[in-house]
Design a protein around this nucleic acid. Structure first.
Lengths: 135, 135
DNA sequence: AGCCAATCTTATTGAGTATTAAGAATATAA
DNA sequence: TTATATTCTTAATACTCAATAAGATTGGCT
């Protein structure tokens, strides 16, 4: 019950809640949040090259059907995935190719962040030695 | 305690845990997860046009300094933000411009998803009328 | 220097919510 | 009906968020 707060709480500036619950930001956050799970990232990478059946994904993920289904449902609920049924199998696919783009960019960001920290480590190591810096 | 299951559970294939906890997927998921909060999305949009102080952000978000600081710390911990101190103020900025790109793509995805469902609504409305489909 | 105020960070708590696994229930196709 | 695929339910655990209070750093004042 989001309308109640506590017995005698002050009005508590309602404009702050606006920022927090503004649908625009909530919807964006929900999209990112559903991507924020290792198994769901893995699912999306498996689906990057084309659609797959639930049983197929289940085997690759080494998950039970219940867990697989729940993660797929979470992604489908945010319109990240589409599904179609063929006989007894259900095929899932990425609905919008820009989702894959999102993953690719995340990978780039993390890759360069990691190489930055790697470079920093090297600099620290260099600093320990008496050799002068060339750059 | 992830090592316990139930009184007499079978060993339960340990390789499944590998997929779940593979650092590659965990790190990617953490990046998306930290973006998965409306206030943090809002912070990033405020920072898109340049750096800001904590007090500045705090005022725009209508949040207290502690809450502001905690969200900023979460983003900084995932290397999304950088900070620098000038006197008593701390300025935050987006570390990698590709983060803004991530937000822009998310916006595109959501925009087209919404216009799809809007178009679907129109189609449903048309279907209720006897007028033949022109396309 | 010594002290105070402003700014920001960190730690802690509690309430609410999400995630997980396992099993039951459901639906569909062969 | 049987097998397959998925959803629903339940319960235990874990996490997130917001709010408070305490701590640290800086600048300015006297």
């Amino acid at each position: 019950m989001p309308s109640r707060r506590s017995p005698s709480a002050p009005p508590a500036d309602p404009s702050a809640a606006h920022v927090r619950s503004d649908p625009v930001y909530v919807v964006k956050a929900q999209l990112f949040r559903v991507l924020g799970h290792p198994l769901r990232i893995r699912i999306l990478e498996l689906l990057r090259d084309g659609e797959r059946t639930v049983g197929d994904l289940q085997a690759e993920l080494e998950l039970d059907s219940s867990g697989t289904s729940q993660h797929l449902a979470a992604l489908r609920q945010q319109s990240v995935l589409d599904s179609r049924r063929v006989g007894t199998s259900v095929y899932y696919r990425i609905r919008d190719p820009r989702i894959s783009q999102l993953l690719a960019i995340a990978k780039e960001i993390l890759t360069s962040a990691l190489s930055d920290s790697h470079a920093l480590l090297s600099d620290l190591a260099d600093e320990a030695r008496p050799r002068p810096r060339s750059r």
